[in-house]
């Protein structure tokens, strides 16, 4: 990943490490799901959500995951004994994208002010951006942060 003029002077490694650290903390503290380590990027993640942001910086955060990861994360966050239904899963995964985006931006720029959009479903994950993929106890999650104006 090469830096562009829209990366606000950040090093690519810093962005990637921040995404990784935030994901681990969020998943373990609020979704009760262990992270085993880095994973191969997903070709076709099943659940895909994104959030655009404006303010001090603008850009988009996107997230995708495998079906088994989505099922575990949704059930854990919602405190369910069984499986989450489609609505519960959408609610929880939307909130996960919100928490991950907010956490990453706050760490990358502690003095910034950011306005986050409501989460929205994506037909496919965007190309480009800074990406991390994590192997979870169940399944894989991939997060992408694009800094700069989003077309």
């Amino acid at each position: 990943m090469t830096l562009t003029e829209t990366d606000y002077g950040l090093a690519a490694a810093e962005i990637k490490n921040t995404l990784m650290e935030c994901s681990v903390e969020v998943l373990e503290s609020m979704f009760y799901c262990g992270v085993l380590g880095p994973a191969e990027e997903l070709d076709h993640p099943y659940h895909r959500y994104a959030i655009s942001f404006s303010g001090t910086w603008e850009g988009e955060f996107a997230m995708g995951m495998t079906e088994d990861a989505a099922a575990v994360l949704a059930a854990n966050f919602a405190g369910l004994d069984g499986d989450a239904d489609a609505d519960q899963m959408a609610e929880v995964l939307s909130e996960l994208s919100n928490i991950l985006c907010g956490a990453a931006l706050s760490r990358l720029n502690r003095n910034g002010i950011f306005n986050l959009s409501s989460p929205y479903a994506l037909a496919m994950l965007p190309a480009g951006g800074h990406r991390v993929a994590l192997e979870l106890e169940e399944g894989t999650l991939q997060a992408t942060l694009r800094l700069g104006p989003v077309a």
Binding site: C101, G102, L105, R107, R110, N111, G112, I113, F114, L116
Partner: peptide
């Protein structure tokens, strides 16, 4: 209760 942990916010 927010994801926003910036000092400014």
């Amino acid at each position: 209760v927010s994801t926003d942990a910036t000092d400014a916010r």
